[in-house]
Simulated assay, not measured.
Amino acid sequence: MNQEFSAAYWQQRYQQGQTGWDVGGITAPLREYFDQLQNKALRILIPGCGHAYEAEYLHNLGFTQVYVADLAEAPLQQFASRVPGFPKAHLLQADFFSLEGQYDLVVEQTFFCALPPDLRPNYARKCAELLYPGGKLMGLLFDTAFSSPGPPFGGDREEYRAYFSPYFDFLHFETAYNSIPPRQGRELFILLQKQAAE
Rank of each mutant, 00 (worst) to 15 (best):
L171C: 14
D35T: 11
R120M: 09
Q77N: 06
V68E: 11
P75Q: 01
Y123R: 15
H90W: 00
L61F: 11
L130K: 03
I44W: 04
S148P: 04
L115V: 04
Q193A: 00
P84F: 09
K194L: 15
Q3P: 08
S81Y: 09
V106P: 09
Q38M: 08
Q93V: 02
A162G: 07
I180C: 07
P152S: 13
Q38K: 11
P116A: 03
N60H: 15
G135F: 04
P149S: 09
K88N: 06
P151V: 01
P29E: 01
P149E: 04
N60G: 14
Y123S: 00
Q93C: 03
G20A: 07
Y33G: 06
G25I: 11
Q65A: 03
H51R: 14
Q11C: 08
F112M: 12
R157G: 04
I44C: 04
H59A: 14
A8E: 13
E100L: 14
R157E: 08
A162L: 12
S165R: 10
Y103E: 00
Q93R: 12
F189M: 05
Y9V: 11
P151S: 12
R82F: 04
E174S: 15
Q195R: 15
F164D: 02
G135W: 06
S6G: 10
M1S: 07
F34E: 05
Y14R: 07
P149W: 10
F153R: 07
A114C: 14
L91S: 00
E108R: 09
